[in-house]
């Protein structure tokens, strides 16, 4: 287990990227896989905000960022599902 949060966030980001690459490669991405891939993107965005940009240390702003990401996610997801 990596102690330092920065390399740990990096490993997580690489892991999530590999996962989405695998999902995308695994047959033509259908609806469900596409939604999962979007979710993985949002998870990466949250990791970057929390660790690279150090919002984890400022709970008030982290909550705000979570709201923003959730809104972006709902908006994109909604448009994707409609289309």
């Amino acid at each position: 287990m990596i102690r330092d949060p920065l390399p740990r966030a990096w490993a997580l980001l690489i892991g999530l990227s590999l996962l989405s690459a695998a999902l995308a490669d695994w047959s033509d991405p259908g609806r469900l896989t596409s939604i999962l891939i979007l979710g993985l993107g949002l998870a990466k965005a949250r990791t970057i905000l929390a660790t690279y940009l150090r919002l984890a240390g400022a709970p008030f702003w982290m909550r705000g960022a979570d709201w923003v990401l959730a809104l972006v996610g709902v908006l994109l997801l909604g448009l994707y599902i409609v289309g």
Partner: peptide, 23 residues
């Protein structure tokens, strides 16, 4: 400067799945 760079990162991880992957 690093914060600017993280912003560029942040944008990319959202751009990438939507434009390239979601089918």
């Amino acid at each position: 400067a690093a914060a600017f760079w993280h912003m560029v990162d942040l944008v990319w991880v959202l751009l990438f799945p939507v434009i390239y992957l979601m089918g």
